[in-house]
Nucleic acid binder design. Structure first.
Lengths: 226, 226
DNA sequence: TAAGTTACTCGTACACCGTAAGGGGGACGA
DNA sequence: TCGTCCCCCTTACGGTGTACGAGTAACTTA
């Protein structure tokens, strides 16, 4: 009962309503994507919905709960794999989808750490990932661990990616790499050398490298079953 | 000039001072570890330091900048590997150290996404990681990519770990797994099955599994050099 | 039709927040 | 002695989340 997920929204009796939990979450999501979390206030959200600030509180217990709902809502756009796909293309596809969610909603991946991911959409995603590995033949424990490994990688990567690009932080420019390079030139040559290596600026390549290498590990486990 | 890292604190002229950027950061860190980010305000921090709220603003331009300083300060506790160690024990040790930072400072890993990690301590860490892989013989590009992969995994894992345990969120209990299991029993059996598997509750095992598998991939690259 | 219940919206108010603007005092060099 | 700096503080402004309770309209029941 402490969590949004255990207490359903109050049942509606049927008449047409101006406000609803869904409408509120949808608009909040829109504003988050546009301006980021720091610029979202209950007052502005209410204004955008043409309602008084306190009206929102009948549909949503608290701002934190609303944020939790929004976080889970993003998982709703997660692309589930096609039913017949083999485990590897299914898994790869899901990981790309996960990363795309992060790029589309920078505020989201930045705040993934705020709540346990136990909302319905997040759980549906986790379930699909597990399913794909069970189908591949892995035991429950191995499947769970594999899924944990890949998705941890993708989330960690996406956070770093969003940070360095500075995306979604309005009024904040991405860090100036040449200045940083100058700042650390003497003390941390390896780091600076990396900053100056143009081929590393292909973030796609960076992502795929890691994803390949993590999936390689899983493929070895699957192969060990035969 | 937009970042804390490009503008040094105002130079002090030598007399003993009650306040300083270092003291402020230290106390802020202490309060963050104890109560989490949500409970930290400039006013409370000032009170704790026996100063007036606005006094802090001579040493620190803004609360956000202070948070950025605190985030980097945590990297200061990162354990650098012993000089003579082979690449694998060096890398493993650093990844364990990184995870320990997260467990010790849950607010920290939760907010890692707020700023690019370009502070001096964060860069020192990144440099050490790169160095260990260069020493192993990897090219700049391969070393960078390997480091990106492992550390992304560790950060992503630590975020999930901190979330599920609920640690550091005062007044917020960790999620009740049995209720969640009941909630999703019908729709997402794989997920529920995982929740009920006791051997997965060993987070250590989960972490080591992923770390092993990611490092396996790197070892293959290193071995390919001979 | 009348009375009561439920579902929803809103106005007011409180405690708190980050911080802009500027004043004051003490140590210092001239 | 008189500036000039460094550092700290007071005051004040425009926000914030949300507790509390009043208001309204529709639906249920008699």
């Amino acid at each position: 009962m402490d969590s949004v997920w255990f207490s359903k929204p109050r049942p509606s009796s049927g008449q047409p309503l101006g406000l609803s939990r869904e409408a509120i979450v949808r608009k909040a999501l829109e504003m988050l994507d546009e301006h980021g979390l720091a610029k979202l206030s209950m007052r502005k959200l209410a204004a955008e919905l043409g309602a008084a600030p306190m009206s929102l509180y009948w549909h949503v217990p608290t701002k934190d709960a609303l944020l939790e709902l929004c976080l889970d809502e993003v998982y709703g756009d997660f692309a589930l794999p096609e039913p017949g796909a083999d485990w590897e293309t299914a898994l790869r596809g899901m990981m790309h989808s996960l990363r795309h969610l992060a790029l589309k909603h920078p505020w989201w991946v930045r705040n993934i750490g705020e709540f346990a991911t136990i909302g319905p959409n997040a759980v549906a995603m986790a379930d699909a990932m597990l399913a794909s590995m069970r189908v591949a033949g892995l035991s429950l424990v191995e499947a769970s661990r594999s899924v944990s490994t890949v998705s941890s990688y993708v989330v960690g990567f996406a956070i770093a990616e969003v940070n360095y690009s500075g995306s979604g932080k309005m009024d904040v420019a991405p860090p100036d790499m040449s200045k940083i390079a100058e700042l650390y030139r003497d003390k941390h040559p390896h780091y600076v050398e990396m900053l100056n290596e143009p081929s590393l600026w292909s973030v796609e390549g960076l992502f795929e490298f890691g994803l390949d290498s993590v999936i390689d590990g899983i493929r070895a486990r699957v192969a060990a079953l035969r």
